[in-house]
Write a protein that binds this DNA or RNA. Sequence first.
DNA 1: ACATAAAACTAACAAATGTTAGTTAGTTTG
DNA 2: CAAACTAACTAACATTTGTTAGTTTTATGT
Lengths: 193, 193
Amino acid sequence: MLLDKLTRKQEIHQTAAKLFNEMGFNAISMRDLAAELDIKASSLYNHISSKDEILSDIILNIGSQFTEGMLAIVNQEEDVITQLEQLISLHVGIVVDNPDAIGCLNNDWKHLNPESKSRLVKMRNDYEEQFRRIIKRGIVESKIVNLNPEVILFSLLSTLRSMNIWYSKKGSDDVNELTRQVKSILLEGVKVK
Amino acid sequence: MLLDKLTRKQEIHQTAAKLFNEMGFNAISMRDLAAELDIKASSLYNHISSKDEILSDIILNIGSQFTEGMLAIVNQEEDVITQLEQLISLHVGIVVDNPDAIGCLNNDWKHLNPESKSRLVKMRNDYEEQFRRIIKRGIVESKIVNLNPEVILFSLLSTLRSMNIWYSKKGSDDVNELTRQVKSILLEGVKVK
DNA sequence: ACATAAAACTAACAAATGTTAGTTAGTTTG
DNA sequence: CAAACTAACTAACATTTGTTAGTTTTATGT
């Protein structure tokens, strides 16, 4: 099933993610999307019900992947540093498999319809809250430096969230090596001691 | 002169930057922009010549600030770590003064007209190349960890470039304290040694 | 007070947008 | 074979878009 050929709807989602990522949701018309698939705009509506829905499907799917990944990590109750390393791996893994969809999530979540947007924002808030708790626990346990947890959180998230940009630019090389280096830089810093 | 009241054109730029940052260039119509200024769309054209031009003005202005800041730092020929700290201060300073315009630069540069886009991309490439040289020199001098300079560069830039997002969310508190913490996190990492 | 410039207005345009209705050709299934 | 389904098509729709032309109001300087 997973190795099957894509359904037409999945093809549309994939192509839409690519175009939305390149130019933004609002810059891509249904005619643009259709042209990329070599059909007419109206034919898209045999498979999807609105432009809105395409965006929601793409973004909420990625949101769910992060939510599930975070849940798995939190439930494992490992060491704080290990959990941070697992979070970094989670982000790298999702980026590698869905670079375009991540771009949509980062840039086009504002254009979700109200229902989808509120679902996403809730997922994101929950995700950040779990991340924050890990950091705070690390500070209490003296495993993480005693700085403003908010600054630590967003510094880490900034790098993790924009990995899609330079991942697509550089090509994979070796994903394991990339993960190792990102872990080292984020956790140990760039300065030689 | 700098403390003078804004010209109407500057007001338009300021309001446009705010709206573009909130919803993206393509999602804001000239009627939206005009409404925010309590005038009609056509009245805008007494002050600006096109929607395109507004975006170019906003973005290239910020681009220039980064270019000039980088030039000043490179010319000073300080220690590598000092230069990195100065770069962090440069980003914080520009973000604090122009959070909306930074959002435009990050998200809407793709929608610049061809001439402006190529100017911006050149500025950005030059900026990144100078940044890369500092990192490479740091590695040679054993001041910076011996990892892929590209990964170091984009990890640092990711955090610096998205500071606008959480700066506007948190309010300034104390900019000096913020700068100090970001320097510590990026250079020393988050893990207790 | 008068002339000039600055900045607003109304009305309209051609193009582009998301979407619907109705139709047709090809494929699968009973 | 006939029925049903899939997936494409053409044509058209009401809105929204950036922008222009022409006009009127408001502010400024002599």
